[in-house]
Amino acid sequence: MNDEKLDIYLRAYQAQTDINPSARLMANILAVPGMGQAGVIAFPWNLFDLMMPKAVGWALTCVLGIYLGFYSAEQGHNPLDEEFYLYDQAQVLLSEDMEDSF
């Protein structure tokens, strides 16, 4: 095959494959930075992706809060607290005594 004929074939292939991209493709590509407002409006399911990390974060915080709440309620009276109170009081009295001696 000579060069001239090859060029004709190449031009035919060029013309046949010169196809416009679909509108769906354009919309998908433009939605890439659309993790913002426009993306959510155009593609509501993006909202799910957007909210997911926050939702997981809040859920873990709530579970931890509830667990600590119930756990501390079950503790009841701790005798150790009393001892620390007395130790605290003794320190106050001691410091007062020391101030008096100066």
């Binding site: 196809i19 416009n20 493709l25 998908n28 590509i29 890439v32």
Partner: peptide, 27 residues
């Protein structure tokens, strides 16, 4: 995107000879 999608999409289609594959590549 509006400036370059068409020529590069055509390029990808010509190289891999598959339109659906070319769309994935462009995305």
């Amino acid at each position: 995107v509006e400036r370059h999608l068409r020529p590069y999409h055509v390029f990808a289609t010509r190289v891999i000879q598959d339109r659906a594959g070319a769309e994935d590549i462009m995305q």
